[in-house]
Computed example of a mutant assay.
Amino acid sequence: MTDQVAVADTDTGNPDGTILRTRLVTRTRDTAVARNALQHTFQIRSLDVTGSNDFLFEETLTGTSLLTLESTSCTGTIRGDVDASAAIIVVWLKAGHAVVGGQQLPVGRPVLYAPGVQQVQWDRFQKDVMRIDRELVEQVAADRGGWEPRPLEFKPNHVPDGAPLAAWWLMVRAVAAEILGTTGEVSLERERELARTAAAGLLTAIPHWPVGRRSEQAPATPLGQAETFILDHIGDHITLDDVATAAGMSQRGLQAAFQRAHGTTPMTYLRGVRLLMARQQLESGTATSVSDVARAVGITHLGRFSGAYRDAFGELPGETFRSAARYDN
């Protein structure tokens, strides 16, 4: 097999208001090449990459200094000490086994790397990673929380579930489609908007607070209150006016705030979260029926639900339900 490595340049903003989005691709059966790729991707020490005759390492890294997506699979074992101080790093294991900072990662759930150095071990795995500029995340948190920008603490070892998890996947789907679709010179302003959207999804999914406070507090800003109201009332019939009233905002102001933070409207955001929550429940193998799942997440029109679900995921909800039931049995 021929190793294919595209070397990415350093991402910096240009005078013409653009930033370079690069893609680095590595596919190799050589553990030394895999080690070099990982050292380019992470700040990592004591790195050890081992494998048997079937060793295969594949990695695609796409993004800028503000926001990066990485997808990696490996049939071997990777160990080392990762320094996550420079960026906010979120990982979700898709298959295999992994331990990060002493925490065994669940499959299919985003987990945040703690800041600083931590030991990692990955065994015969597939995973995705998102990196977001740390200062940008701190600024977005301050805007949402009503405090001055400062370093953040996140709830240790938190694994999102329910509506916050669905909100995370809604963000990932939106951001990944644009990042993976275009490389080269892109608008710096648009890249910042994407990174802020990613930060908002992260902050929705994982409890956090500024360093110096003891725990998470209720959102102090109208946007944060609107987001909390939506996620707390996923199963209820709520309107745009309900959300605006809960946030103390006009409908127009709420629409504008959501567009800036999430790149969409509040009701489109609500529908997207509901669809993803429905998919989570249908894939779990524990659902009793498609209609029960739809009602549980606040969807009352099953015909429209089926069409929207097929548009979003490429199959009808009944197909997901039957597939999960067969797998569970």
Rank of each mutant, 00 (worst) to 15 (best):
G146P: 02
D161S: 14
V137Y: 05
N157F: 06
D143H: 12
P156N: 04
G145W: 01
R144N: 07
V140T: 09
M130W: 09
V159Y: 05
P160E: 09
P160Y: 04
G162C: 07
A142P: 01
E135V: 13
V159S: 05
F154C: 05
V140E: 00
D143N: 13
K155L: 15
A141H: 01
K127N: 11
V140C: 00
A141I: 02
R144K: 04
F154H: 14
F154P: 01
E148T: 13
V129Y: 04
Q139G: 11
R150M: 08
D128Y: 02
A142H: 02
D143A: 15
V140S: 00
K127Y: 11
G146S: 06
R144Q: 13
P151G: 11
K127C: 06
D143W: 03
K155S: 11
A141V: 04
R150Y: 01
I132V: 15
V140W: 00
F154K: 08
L136P: 03
E148H: 04
R131V: 00
P151R: 13
E153R: 14
G162P: 00
P149C: 11
E153H: 10
K127G: 11
R150Q: 15
H158F: 15
F154N: 10
W147T: 12
M130G: 07
R150D: 03
V159D: 06
F154V: 01
H158E: 13
D128L: 01
D161A: 14
K127W: 09
E138D: 13
G145L: 02
E135P: 00
D161M: 07
G146T: 03
R134L: 06
M130K: 03
P156M: 03
D128T: 03
P156A: 13
A142Q: 05
N157L: 03
V137S: 06
H158N: 12
P156R: 12
E135L: 11
D133S: 13
P151S: 11
Q139F: 06
V129G: 02
H158Q: 12
M130L: 13
D128N: 11
V137K: 04
P149R: 08
E153Y: 01
P149W: 04
D143Y: 03
G146W: 04
N157M: 01
G162V: 08
N157T: 04
V137H: 05
E135R: 14
D143F: 05
V159E: 07
V129K: 05
A142S: 12
D133K: 08
A142F: 03
I132D: 00
V159C: 07
G145Q: 01
D161N: 10
V129D: 09
R131I: 02
W147Y: 15
R134I: 04
K127T: 12
P149E: 08
V137Q: 07
V159L: 05
A141S: 08
W147K: 06
A142C: 03
M130Y: 05
N157H: 09
G146N: 08
A141G: 09
V159R: 08
V140A: 01
E138P: 07
G146M: 04
N157Y: 00
R150P: 00
P151A: 12
G162I: 12
P160M: 03
R131L: 13
P160W: 06
I132K: 02
L152E: 10
R131Y: 07
E148G: 02
W147V: 08
E135G: 10
E148L: 09
D133G: 11
N157I: 00
G162N: 09
I132Q: 01
H158Y: 15
D133L: 05
R144D: 06
E135H: 14
Q139R: 15
K127F: 12
